[in-house]
Design a protein around this nucleic acid. Structure first.
Lengths: 226, 226
DNA sequence: ACCAAATGTTACCGATTTGTTACCGTTTCA
DNA sequence: TGAAACGGTAACAAATCGGTAACATTTGGT
């Protein structure tokens, strides 16, 4: 059974999280302050950590940093107070994998945890790096030098597909089938249009692409020269 | 039943691969270091090899090279740690057929294996090598000593056809039918024109061709003296 | 229902690719 | 030896393809 460590000082919240995760079939360990949380993280082998930022004794950022310093690579999902963009970036830089802003729905948090552990178990990546970009699937976010670049859903899915198929030629049909779905009625040129918008967002020189290369008569190929 | 040889030192990964491939209906042989792997590759007649690069005793590149040196042509899929383009190029130059970067999804790897064995059964390869060229169909590119040579769509398709029919005399009609399509209106001389441009891109001495030979009154023949 | 964002489609433009022709040298064979 | 056949290839014309702006439509949130 997979183990989730929840570090949270608000006892009502903690109880809610514990109940829900146990109901969903996880083994839950809890800690109510930073010190206990850090010890639990280092001692037990949790598969995933849910970490509040505001904590007595040692704050969440510090815990995050210390865990990573010990070369432990379990996923960490941070709980942050509402929309402080800078806090989020700080947390991610310290090694967190994802964040959820309070107030949040338990259902959403649970969904992220499940998705995370599934990918982890199947050895799928949840982040891809190229040039100075970090593409984070679970957080559905693209960062360039730590700064977020907003992508529409299609743009995100398209880039995700490109990253998963790095170095391979992809036909417009393959792209349509995967990104748009097998029963789409969209035409081939829709792919081109989204490639253009993606290029405008990620290519330093959209006219001389470094990442998304055109293959005439075929389609496209994502190939960041590393 | 088809046999897959998995050479991988991480026992967890090895177990995962073995289970999945057996579940998918393959006979699986395993080896946990380079020496054992090489022996298994040379002794048993595996239909396909999955080869980790980082291995104790003999590394994956070396195994790849030694297998090819013995003129064994089973497909080799390399597992590379990171998307190091140079590693990948090195591997492909040493005779690997495809690569998957860790971490990868078992599903994806399985899909590639299935695709490979299907093509192999039909006698098709995914990459072709001649002199210091590597022609990679799925990445749709031609490398000369690791450097890309740009080909137009027709040039690419023509070279692909030549490579698939290595050593066979091809009439202009056959070439037109396959590369241009059965309902083309193009004339015979178009073939000549593209042969010329191809020669200019790949032949060291276009006037004294080493690869694409003219067969007077017949057509052409691709024949790299190996 | 309204507005804003996202998505899909179309049309035009420019760059590349492709097909054809013409001219030339080479080979073949009488 | 000379004419005919053939392939090599430069040069030009035509077709094709992808980039993208602009517009239309759909979707989602409030």
């Amino acid at each position: 059974m997979e183990t989730v460590l929840v570090i949270e000082d608000d006892s009502t919240m903690l109880r809610g999280l514990k109940d829900n995760f146990e109901y969903a079939g996880y083994h839950v360990i809890t800690a109510v302050d930073g010190e206990a949380g850090l010890n639990a993280a280092l001692d037990t082998k949790a598969d995933l950590i849910i970490l509040d930022i505001m904590l007595p004794k040692i704050n969440g950022y510090e815990i995050c940093r210390l865990i990573r310093k010990e070369k432990l690579d379990m996923p960490i999902i941070m709980l942050t107070a509402k929309g402080e963009e800078s806090d989020i970036v700080l947390g991610l830089n310290l090694g967190a994998d994802d964040y959820v802003t309070k107030p949040f729905s338990i259902k959403e948090l649970l969904a992220r945890v499940v998705a995370f552990l599934r990918r982890r178990k199947q050895g799928e990546k949840d982040t891809y790096e190229f040039a100075d970009f970090v593409f984070d699937i679970s957080a559905r976010r693209l960062l360039k030098k730590g700064e977020e670049i907003k992508l529409s859903p299609k743009e995100f899915n398209l880039l995700e597909f490109f990253l998963k198929k790095q170095g391979k030629a992809l036909t417009r049909d393959e792209i349509l089938n995967v990104v748009w779905g097998y029963n789409t009625f969209s035409g081939h040129r829709s792919v081109d249009r989204f490639v253009t918008t993606l290029r405008n967002k990620i290519e330093p020189e959209p006219h001389n692409p470094a990442f998304i290369h055109t293959l005439r008569e075929v389609g496209y190929k994502f190939d960041p020269m590393l």
